[in-house]
Design a protein around this nucleic acid. Structure first.
Lengths: 114, 114
DNA sequence: TCCTTTGTTCGATGTTCGTAGAACGTCAAA
DNA sequence: TTTGACGTTCTACGAACATCGAACAAAGGA
């Protein structure tokens, strides 16, 4: 059984403002975006968040289906990267503003690496 | 009986990113912000949204307690204004980015004036 | 061929949210 | 004083959400 959600990513034109804002309304998801803000691709195994495996999977799906991240499979492992340029082209300035504000307020600091 | 929620507005330092993002995750609230984006103070009676009176009151309270708008009473009438400078000082670039994106996508166009 | 690792999916649960209607308080006008 | 306009609050309800554990699927190793 093929699940569309596994591989689908929205094009920049398909990204929805309300969905993106909603995706960025959760501290854990903001923390994940902050970790990825340097543009590096990261394996899920490196992501440390105070939630269960299934909840983390859920949050990463929300980010992906909003268009904020891109997920790539390699064997049984997943790698995720921030779609910074795509988001910038669709919503100029939005991601930078959120990242700046999140840094200032330490939003999502419960999420870490390694 | 005094209700704190009637008059309380957060200082810029008290504004919370997650709360602001959440407040801007609803199309009707984004529409209200768009209407107020010219900086003019507007009476509630001028706001036209496809929701009931109580629901509109709820949305305006969410915007107010997030710090996005300021509400002033005058007799039995209410006036609301966008706190553009306060939001800009706390979250530089955020409001502009959201307004630009909302205009491009016509988010909240179901809200109108008069 | 098993077993481990990795991530998804499926209930289940408790919470929050958007919504509406009814009741209330307040102020102004008739 | 009575009536009407205006906005808030209370209550209720369904939908959506965050969370978890368990079951599942796929890919490599032992």
């Amino acid at each position: 059984m093929v699940d569309v959600r596994d591989t689908w990513h929205p094009d920049p034109d398909e990204m929805n403002l309300t969905e993106v804002m909603s995706a960025l309304s959760d501290p854990i998801r903001v923390g994940l975006i902050r970790l990825l803000s340097d543009g590096e691709e990261r394996g899920w195994g490196l992501l440390r968040a105070p939630v269960s495996k299934s909840t983390l999977s859920h949050h990463l799906r929300v980010l992906r289906s909003a268009g904020l991240t891109r997920t790539r499979m390699e064997g049984t492992r997943c790698f995720v990267v921030l779609r910074r340029d795509d988001v910038q082209s669709r919503f100029p300035g939005l991601l930078d503003a959120v990242l700046t504000a999140a840094d200032n307020q330490s939003v999502g600091s419960e999420v870490s690496l390694a």
